[in-house]
Amino acid sequence: MARIRGLLLFYRSFFLIPGLILTVCGCYLYYRNAKYDFGVGPSVLGLKFIVFALAAYSAYRSKQLYFYYNLRLSYIQLIITSFILDFLLFFAYFKIASYFY
């Protein structure tokens, strides 16, 4: 249980805010343009990958990693879990946005 809480705390510490901002902006663009042409889709997705990579690099440089290491969580485990959570959230918001146009 402590390890699951650790995974969620790691995601919340490094990925939640940039992920939410980008997701909300992406959904807004999608909502405004999808009816006509979803040309912004690949760009938003590309930006999402870049932001995730930057957040992952920032986390890698962070001293807080030792908090998670002491919970027996490796950097790879932390990043994979965050990737899954982040992109699940991203696509869930897009799916919800698609119901409104």
Binding site: R5, G6, L9, Y69, N70, S74
Partner: peptide
């Protein structure tokens, strides 16, 4: 560090996430 109940390390710098509560921190380390 991945072996359960084997080892813990106190680094020389501050490593605890700022948002965690004191009790949660202690209990997450059993």
């Amino acid at each position: 560090f991945k072996v359960k109940g084997l080892i813990r390390y106190l680094p020389q710098f501050d490593f605890i996430p700022r948002s965690i509560r004191l009790r949660s921190f202690a209990e997450s380390y059993d």
